[in-house]
Design a protein around this nucleic acid. Structure first.
Lengths: 150, 150
DNA sequence: TGCCAGATAGGAGTAGATCCTATATACTGG
DNA sequence: CCAGTATATAGGATCTACTCCTATCTGGCA
């Protein structure tokens, strides 16, 4: 996996924390590292498990609270989901999601991978659209293969 | 609100249940009625509250289990969300959703309201797309008004 | 180096969802 | 129309994710 300067034009993690008046603690840095390296879309509980490998005593509350702060200042995002856990995404480049209806995995879809329409022109007075994403739904390769030869 | 034959070309609720080998119980019919009349996107717990007006002793488990069955046979859908409750949608006509980032409400968006792109042509080998939806995000009218004059 | 606002650990509390089982009831065939 | 049976329900127990609370700790400052 690529190290370090993930953000072209973006602030470094440490600077990012500082500029939002968040103290730089080893716990926060580790959480940051974990959320940025993920390819899946883990819940707070799952990330807690991962961070515990380095900080065995870290509390779930710390992880959850930290992730929420990160999401608010734009270090990570909440991911839309269909179950009752809140999921996070460390991938901040614009992208869409594919949901597998079988295994429930969520895969990232780069905008280049599909012919993306421009911000849809709305004929709706009920709201002001700031952003939009496309939510693809179907069956992932793994599940298709599993279903084809039983 | 329009009564009765909601589905042109669709099966009647009763027949729908029967054709999926689900016994027709008064509880199920009431849950069905409630989920089909909703304009919001209620959770199982919220729907349980509503159904209790008619069946004070109905258990949450029954409502949750029934909704899951309904979703599986295509009477209702799961709604994508950012929090840790599972929400349902009784509107089965194709549509998209607008999420208000302030009040967290989810509003339905008819496809005609936006210039909908066709099913995006995917250059991605990792999955087979069956369906897609657009997830709009922004600020709803109510919240805009509230923020404008304080 | 010492201070203190802010951060953490750990436990308690909460809410939604799921599991379990005895009882009730919708459908079936007679 | 009725009895038998497979299925559904109610209610409680359990589970899980998350949030709240508070004593202790510590990063960043002077």
């Amino acid at each position: 996996m690529e190290q370090g300067s993930k953000g072209q034009g973006k602030k470094e993690p440490l600077e990012l924390l500082r500029s939002h008046n968040l103290r730089v603690t080893p716990q926060r840095l580790e959480i940051l590292k974990q959320i940025q390296r993920t390819e899946d879309h883990p819940s707070a509980t799952e990330l807690h498990r991962r961070v515990r490998r380095k900080f065995p005593n870290i509390s779930l509350d710390t992880v959850a609270r930290t992730l929420e702060q990160f999401a608010k200042i734009g270090i990570c995002r909440w991911v839309e989901g269909y179950d009752d856990v809140r999921r996070y995404d460390g991938m901040m480049e614009r992208h869409h999601h594919f949901h597998c209806i079988r295994c429930k995995r969520i895969l990232d879809v780069r905008p280049e991978a599909l012919e993306e329409p421009p911000l849809p022109s709305l004929r709706d007075e009920r709201f002001k659209v700031i952003d939009f994403r496309i939510l693809l739904e179907g069956i992932c390769k793994k599940c298709m293969e599993r279903e084809q030869d039983p």
